[in-house]
């Protein structure tokens, strides 16, 4: 005896299949799942509410920090408006051999931003800086900004750094670690000098730094 076409699929029932089935309906007891498990979970939830405030200090993970900086740079691009440009790419330059280049290159291969390709260029020395929309200045090359900062800003380059106090010295965006989280400082004066407009949402999330304070 062969019923067919149940549930959109053919089934064939013969003796071997029936061996596993009792004749006549039967039911297991109600209530799926072990009751002790559920009670335990309820107690655990209450306990968690008490323990959740306990927190140990965390050591900074440098590799995660690098990836985060790259992700921040990628995200920040979405909030910045440059003067009209016919370029198809958004170029992120890195001054110095900084490890942030690695995740930035990975991002440029798999993501586009604002409908444009992202291009990553590393400039080993300040003298070799080429055209770019963003320049990440690694710590060893901060001093070069003294001579090149004005020139870069006039080219509408968004300067980004990760050295303490850099926003107060004229860099538009500077990464800092505050309470185990990566934050970014923003200098409105630096943005204005570079002729760049930044979205209000990003400014609301930033730490605004007044350049006068650092002098």
């Amino acid at each position: 005896m062969k019923p067919v076409d149940t549930f959109g699929q053919s089934i064939v029932l013969r003796g071997s299949a029936q061996k596993r089935r009792r004749i006549g309906p039967a039911r297991l007891c109600e209530g799926g799942g072990p009751p002790n498990l559920r009670r335990f979970l309820l107690l655990a939830v209450v306990g968690l509410a008490c323990l959740a405030v306990v927190s140990d200090a965390f050591a900074v993970d440098k590799e995660r920090l690098i990836r985060l900086k790259a992700a921040f740079i990628f995200n920040i691009i979405g909030y910045v408006r440059w003067p009209e440009s016919a370029q198809d790419n958004i170029t992120v330059g890195i001054l110095g051999e900084d490890p942030v280049a690695v995740p930035l290159r990975a991002i440029s291969k798999k993501r586009m931003v604002k409908g444009k390709r992202m291009e990553v260029k590393v400039f080993p020395e300040a003298s070799g800086i080429g055209p770019c929309n963003i320049l990440f200045v690694s710590a060893p090359h901060v001093a070069a900004l003294d001579s090149l900062g004005v020139q870069l800003e006039s080219s509408h380059v968004l300067l980004i750094g990760d050295t303490d106090g850099l926003a107060g010295k004229g860099v538009a965006v500077n990464f800092v670690v505050v309470k185990e989280r990566l934050r970014f400082e923003v200098s409105l004066q630096a943005l204005k000098r570079a002729g760049l407009v930044v979205g209000a949402k990003m400014l609301n999330l930033s730490i605004l730094v007044d350049e006068k304070d650092s002098q």
Binding site: F58, E63, L68, F72, Y79, E180, R181, L182, L205
Partner: peptide, 18 residues
């Protein structure tokens, strides 16, 4: 994972030993 996060999300990522 970071690339899929918003700016707000990124600000909440702990920079911990990992």
């Amino acid at each position: 994972a970071f690339l899929d996060m918003s700016l707000t999300d990124l600000l909440n990522v702990p920079v911990v030993t990992a």
